[in-house]
Amino acid sequence: MGIVKEFVKGLWNDNPTFRLQIGLCPTLAVTSSALNGVGMGAATTFVLMCSSILISALRNVIPSKVRIPCFIVVIATFSTVVDLVMNALLPDLHRVLGIFIPLIVVNCILMGRAEAFASKRPVFDAAIDGLGMGIGFTWALTLIGTVRELLGAGSLFGYKLVSDTAATFGIFSVAPGAFITVGFLLAAMNMISTRLRKTSKEA
């Protein structure tokens, strides 16, 4: 039961994007299409899981005074791995995501989970926590990407849904649209949460 709870909390209650509002830069920068959102989410999930496992395994070895630099080195190693692998296998996606792949290092989600969870819990728990948080991050990015791609380009995962001549809201493909989309999605999440709390109280 505990494991399920650790996994599920990243999906909704402690969702990094909509709840904790951390790791915002890639969330806004690379979500101009749904596919980019999935790619960024997958890359981050991989780094998050691997670094959680390693940091948890080393938690009794790392002296607490120098733990932050140690965490950074572990995270930097895995994001370099992702950077190089993606460059070799998925060069197109790598080009779109650009510097946001090496920037996974400074994504607060990773540091946050390392400090708050992985450095205190056994390896298996840390892995599940990393996976849950990563998937929570991925679905948030994919949702934002889907909304922006639908409105901005009239397509979904690259498939055109409207004719080429149809007018689309180009603004949602560029910077201002990213902020506005996230703003309204946050409001929607708040409304759903309030609704849920109300029904659970009545029941």
């Binding site: 509002q21 603004i171 560029v174 910077a175 201002p176 649209g177 990213a178 902020f179 506005i180 996230v182 703003g183 309204f184 946050l186 409001a187 929607a188 708040n190 409304m191 309030t194």
Partner: peptide, 23 residues
């Protein structure tokens, strides 16, 4: 501010408008 938007939600929309100005 409408209740669900209060806090971060409205901040993001303002950032969007600022970003629009900067474009």
């Amino acid at each position: 501010v409408p209740k669900p938007l209060a806090g971060t939600g409205i901040a993001f929309i303002i950032a969007g408008l600022l970003s629009l100005a900067f474009s």
